[in-house]
């Protein structure tokens, strides 16, 4: 008979307007329990308005070994950034 409680990852929105951020993990057997545990563990000091819990095994993570292929090509495409472009000062609201 198992007594193992699976791992869940917890994401908290600290204040309205902010995105959910990864806070850590909890052990629980169902989503309702995971939410309650996450609330007790991560929001005791008024640190949350919204909680997401996801079974850890449902998270797909990018492979650090592929970090170069995944992320470095973006680095040299500086034309994606507004600072690449020279706009005369007289032109407002651009």
């Amino acid at each position: 008979m198992t007594e193992v409680w699976p791992l869940w990852e917890v994401f908290i929105r600290a204040r309205s307007g902010l995105e959910h951020k990864h806070a850590g993990s909890v052990h629980a057997t169902d989503a309702r329990m995971a939410l309650e545990h996450a609330r007790d563990l991560y929001t005791r000091r008024d640190e949350g308005v919204s909680i997401w819990v996801v079974p850890s095994k449902e998270i797909t993570a990018s492979d650090p070994a592929e970090a170069e292929a995944l992320f470095e090509p973006a680095r040299d495409k500086v034309y994606r950034h507004p600072t690449f472009y020279q706009i005369p000062d007289e032109v407002k609201t651009l």
Binding site: W5, V26, H27, M33, H37, D40, L41
Partner: peptide, 11 residues
């Protein structure tokens, strides 16, 4: 029974 329940009961 678990750390989580320690926190729940304390709450």
């Amino acid at each position: 029974p678990s750390i989580e329940e320690d926190l729940g009961l304390a709450n």
